[in-house]
Amino acid sequence: MKKLVIFFFVAICLPASGLRPGGPVGLCAETPPGHPYTGPAPRRIISLGQTITERIYLLGADKNLIANTVYCVEPEDARHKEKVGTLLQANIEKIVAMKPDLVIATNLASPRQLRKLRDLGIRVVQFSYPENFEEMCEQFLELGRLLGREKEAEEIIDKTRRDVAAIRMKTAALPKKRVFIQLGVKPLHAVTGESFLNDYIEFAGGINIALRDGHGTYSREKVLKGDPEVIIISTMGSSEGETGRKEKEVWMKYRSIAAVRNRQVYLVNPDKLCSPTPLTFVEGLKEITGMIHPELEIGGAK
């Protein structure tokens, strides 16, 4: 009997513990829930997301950034700012102690924590993950307005839009190629039409084979059936490491896929691709375009 009970105890613990680990939490970065603000520019800002930190630097407002998260490593200077936690779980007490006049969070931040901050009278603005390129530009402009750097934001966005338009001009004339961008390995996760990353494929002159596949969990069978001419692997967190390389080896076994025969299976750094600022979006687009249409010689396909 005792054994049976212990067995059951272990059996209960297993699924319960299986519920806890993070899993593929969220893909990338951020929309404002409408916080029109016309007061003086904030002087003590805390950023709770790496993309937000990067954008603040891009806007030249980093002097007012007093703290960020441990994942804010770009640019170099952001590493030396005070740290208040992670993207998901911030240390509320530390934030309050630093007396910020603006906290900018992504939609990955804990809703309870943000509510607590708001209850304590701290201004909190939340940006959700942009659904497409246009939304990313809008968010950047919004951030510019928020930080009193509207002009800088407009200049950057104008340049970004011009760069993107130039690339689109070049790719528009070329035949469309079937593309598959893989985000996760286990489970196999595809970039679909709902994802921000779909814009990379479209702008670079490709057709996403997973365009209409909802939330993105995908199967190898469907990839084989879709027969992509280009496969881009951007596994979360570790494209540089083993996971990405192994995944590439797996794909290379399927000789029936056009991308494998043409040797157009690539690895890309997911950080750059998934959490773009206007600047890195253009770089990422160039890289992807170089992979889909190597003949264009726009970016540096590896």
């Binding site: 806890r20 939490v25 969220g26 998901l88 939609n107 804990s110 939330h215």
Partner: peptide
């Protein structure tokens, strides 16, 4: 969706906050 997933994980982790 990833956003929902995120909310679920948060809640399951348990917190006194």
């Amino acid at each position: 969706h990833s956003e929902d997933l995120h909310g679920i994980v948060f809640w399951i982790m348990g917190s006194l906050d």
